[in-house]
Design a protein around this nucleic acid. Structure first.
Length: 493
RNA sequence: GCCGCCAUAGCUCAGUUGGUUAGAGCGCUAGAUUGUGGAUCUAGAGGUCCCUGGUUCGAGCCCAGGUGGUGGUACCA
């Protein structure tokens, strides 16, 4: 009967994708509910966009227009138009706003939650499908909107259980860096690539340190594996000037903003950036968010499209990993102002700012913080099946429990009683209902409390006593089924 | 993308210089126990030794290419 079959299909998830079980889904749902409550409290409304967008709507931010599958998952519709799975929630929002511009009250405050897809190499804790939770304000040009975004991000983190002090929202302004780059001769369209290289170099500060960043700003850097990363090609003075931004951090937001204003107001754009940061610092102070939101010149974000304030949510607690070394969780979300994004779809330019929370990443961090306390949720009461032809009786008993609001199921498998008990055990069933012919003849049911029973069993060593004692088990009139089961459930609440 | 390491049962792994029918522990299924979770004992099921090709009388083991995983690095909208 076991002839070797060679036609079996291999059961496997695609690389970088994962199935998620009940415990993890429950944790995700709980977290999403907290975030949702926070956003609604701030007056944001939910909107959902499809997983697919036309590739051109996702935009010029694709790494290579000629290869639509690089970075994103793309396919051609039957009319030959390219469509792509969304890689974030911001580009689809920009499209939605442009498409419904007349209908939306501006400033438009909205949030959305869902999976996004990236076609790149997966790593540990890094998947090709993951969840984001975004909030954006479209149509508010002032930095008060950016300040509000930072505050709401802080509220959201606290709502999901990150304690004050265990996180920090860092905020900076792109314009300061733009000013510096302009001053050292990196202005203009022709230097866009080098400006991006500078941004990416600064983004690596926490990992590579000042010397590593300096190398990336100059000629380039060779890492331990021998791979060479080309640098931005700045001269020594230029690199020093860029790095000096990072030293402007002071102990309070007001002082940092002032230091930046004093140092980097040489160009009009730099001055504007400093003024904006000062305004944000004032708003944060007035709202009581000092300390939770911190003005930090090292935040740049790797994205090209940000035009003003940028911010990043960082978890600051450390816990030891399996190898004893501390794990740094780092960034769990970020965002910024993208005044040009909606403008790709319509002549009217529309300012916008928003941020994204990496739900999967945040969830992983919280799980590590709290330990694997995914407390086993209680399963259903299981009504055992005695005679195959009396399954209707089991189902009727289960139905009575359900009518009383108790999770219950009749055992539908084909195994014997011992296996059925094991099944109930594995389902984390609090209690089983047994009705064989003995009970049925007398109009009774036997209930076994599995939680109590497990405790009693621990003390019993030999088989005879085990079978004899039948711990935590009662036989009651069938009419009292619901009350007695409720009593058992109440014991373990 | 680049560099390194790894791939044998559901899981963790052993497997001699290249030599007969590839093993262990755990897990799973069942029996001992006419109707009871645990413990104990016993039995059973479960394998394309990642794939393809090569060397050889003979390959789980050696060689080449591929695939997948993993650790760095790059990218991360």
């Amino acid at each position: 009967m076991n002839a070797r079959r060679t036609d079996l299909t291999q059961a496997r998830t695609p690389r970088g994708f994962a199935d998620r079980g009940a415990a993890e889904l429950a944790a995700t749902r709980a977290m999403a509910d907290r975030i949702r409550e926070t956003y609604e409290l701030w007056g944001f409304e939910e909107v959902e966009t499809p997983f697919f967008e036309y590739t051109d709507a996702l935009g010029k931010f694709l790494p290579d227009q000629d290869r639509p599958n690089a970075g994103v998952f793309s396919l051609q519709d039957d009319d030959e138009q390219w469509m792509s799975l969304r890689y974030d929630l911001t580009a689809p929002l920009a499209r939605h706003v442009a498409e419904n511009f007349q209908k939306l009250a501006k400033p438009y405050r909205s949030y959305r939650f869902g999976p996004v897809f990236r076609n790149e190499k997966p790593g540990p804790g890094r998947f090709r499908q993951f969840l984001q939770f975004d909030a954006d304000i479209v149509g508010a040009p002032s930095v008060s909107a950016d300040a509000e975004m930072c505050m709401m991000m802080a509220d959201a983190l606290e709502a999901v259980g990150v304690k004050r002090g265990d996180y920090v929202i860092k905020v900076n302004n792109r314009k300061i860096l733009d000013g510096v780059m302009e001053a050292i001769g990196l202005g203009g369209e022709e230097n866009a690539g080098r400006r991006l290289t500078v941004l990416r170099a600064i983004d690596k500060l926490d990992r590579l340190g000042p010397d590593g960043v300096r190398a990336l700003l100059g000629d380039g850097r060779k890492d331990e594996s021998g791979d060479f990363t080309k640098g931005a090609g700045l001269d020594e003075a230029g690199a020093a000037r860029v790095l000096s931004i990072l030293e402007a951090k002071r102990s309070t937001n007001a002082e940092t903003a002032e230091a930046l204003a004093a140092e980097f107001a040489a160009t009009p754009v730099g001055a504007k950036g400093a003024t904006e940061l000062k305004a944000i610092a004032d708003l944060l102070a007035a709202a009581g968010y000092d300390g939770r939101v911190s003005v930090d010149p090292s935040v740049v974000r790797g994205l090209e499209y940000y035009t003003g304030p940028v911010y990043e949510a960082e978890l600051t607690f450390q816990i030891a990993g399996d190898d004893g070394k501390p794990i740094q969780f780092g960034s769990v979300g970020g965002g910024g102002r993208y005044d040009g994004l909606v403008g790709r779809f319509m002549a009217e330019n529309t300012p916008a700012t928003g941020f994204s929370i990496g739900v999967s990443r945040l969830q992983a961090a919280l799980r590590a913080l709290k330990g694997e306390t995914a407390e086993a949720s209680t399963g259903p009461v299981v009504v055992l099946a005695f005679d195959r032809d009396r399954i209707g009786d089991s189902m009727a008993l289960a139905a009575r429990l359900r009518a009383a609001g108790i999770k219950a199921e009749a055992y539908l498998g084909g195994s014997g009683m011992k296996a059925q008990m094991k099944y109930a055990d594995r389902r984390k069933s609090p209690c089983v209902v047994i009705q064989g012919s003995d009970e049925r003849d007398k109009g009774e049911v036997t209930l076994k409390d599995l939680v109590e029973g497990a405790k009693a069993a621990a003390a019993i060593a030999d088989r005879a006593e085990w079978t004899e004692s039948r711990p935590a088990q009662v036989t009651v009139p069938e009419a009292r089924l619901v009350e007695e089961v409720q009593a058992i459930l109440a014991r373990h609440r």
